[in-house]
Amino acid sequence: MERERDRLIKRENVRVCIPRYLQIGKGSLNELPEIIKILGSIKSLLIVTDKQMVAFGYVKKLQDILTKAGLKSDVFDDTVPDPTDKVVLKGIEFLEECKNDAVIGFGGGSPMDTAKAIAAMANFSKNIQDYKPPSMFDKKGLPIIAIPTTAGTGSEVTHHAVIIDSNNNEKISCRGEGFVPIVAIVDYDLTLSKPRRLTIDSAIDTLTHGIEAYVSKKATLFSDRMALDTIRLVMQNIYAVDKNPKDLKAREGLMLAATLGGLAFSNASICLVHGMSRPLGSNFKVPHGLSNAMLLPNVTKFSINHAKSRYADCSRAGEFALPEDSDDVACEKLIKGLYKINKDFEVPSMKDFGINEKNFEDELKNMATDAENSGAPNLNPRVPSVNEMVDIYRQAWRAS
């Protein structure tokens, strides 16, 4: 049987999409005006964020930095946890009123995805269905600056933006070079005040990015190194940051993992976990990181025999397994380790989250069909049928 590594070597031609500028490290936010100056054409920026970021004073800090450098900024803080096309269109109207020529996504994945969509759609089609895969949006929209304040989504470096079509509640993963930020500011100082649940769920989201990028059928030698480093950094730091939320080294490690994970999956793709998690968010309002955490152990168990050497590499990178463990042993340890993570960090089952069983059963077939239509399951090592995805959902619903 051909090993997965041999399969990857055959993928010789890969287009890589990354931001032009990546400013990484403590205090990086202060470097933003200098980067904007280098870009040359930006005079007025729309800060896309949420009301919590405003209330906590982070937005004022950012505006003060911009104002001091002679840059005008306006604030759109009406983003919602699962971005919708209606919010994006509202943001575009506000941008046009303020005459902004660039957009800053400031916050978690939702503000960043909203900012990306505003910047991409402002001068093009306003119908979100026009951005639905397999369509790729590679046109040049307004410049996007991404500043994450959570260590999880990796949206600051990806060519994705997930937006819900309000007409049918469909989550659309918009893709293309037009959604890639021109600048990403990766400053772990901005994550220090995040609550435990958000910190942990974001870290498991990052872990999922690393694993899925590495086992994806579109994985490359370019994405492999970042994917394995993502897994390593998450597992080296998730327990430390939970023990001491002010552990700067651990915060820095998780922030870097999120960025590396974003680069990895943006250039290799996500797989079955993400395909199945999005319908949970749109149907039952399960936060994205948490829905990935709910599904990761069961999806890995379902898939692992179809890419043993790849999953074994993931297990060793995360120190679930020892370097000398066989692939079989490493895979067993990975599955046990992922279930242990969920137990250690009190990740609720879907049942414990409060999803009504009847409503859940009524939506199972639709959710599995939506997952299939996303295309992500087709890149999984083991491609599931709709009925197999229904079984995985049921396992995750009752998991303890």
Rank of each mutant, 00 (worst) to 15 (best):
D391V: 12
E357Y: 07
A321W: 05
I200R: 05
I42Q: 02
I118M: 04
V273I: 07
M121E: 02
E31G: 04
D74R: 12
Q63V: 11
E332I: 03
D205S: 06
E324D: 03
P181T: 06
P279G: 07
T191L: 07
M112T: 11
G40N: 06
I185E: 11
S202C: 11
L338P: 05
A184R: 04
I270W: 05
M255N: 13
D370C: 03
E252T: 13
L192T: 13
G141I: 00
K43Q: 14
K246M: 10
K340H: 08
T84M: 11
N292L: 10
S216M: 03
A69R: 11
D82K: 13
H288C: 06
L364P: 08
V88G: 11
S269Y: 09
K86F: 13
D6M: 01
I304P: 07
G176Y: 05
P134D: 10
T114D: 01
R316P: 07
R398A: 11
P245F: 12
F284G: 05
N267D: 06
V390H: 02
N292F: 09
N387Q: 15
P148S: 08
Y131K: 13
N167Y: 12
D229L: 09
V14R: 09
N100Q: 08
A307K: 04
I35G: 02
A117N: 05
G27L: 03
S173A: 14
A376M: 13
G262S: 01
L379G: 01
C174K: 10
A151F: 13
S385K: 02
V386L: 04
R3L: 14
S374K: 14
F179Y: 14
L190P: 00
C98G: 09
S349A: 12
A250F: 09
R225K: 13
T199K: 09
K249D: 14
G176I: 09
N298L: 12
I335D: 12
K140I: 12
V14I: 14
G178Q: 00
D205P: 06
N168G: 11
A184I: 04
I128A: 07
E12T: 14
F137K: 00
L190H: 10
F222E: 05
Y239P: 08
G318T: 00
L8Q: 11
V157W: 01
P348S: 09
P83E: 03
S125N: 03
K333M: 00
M53T: 01
E2T: 14
F106C: 00
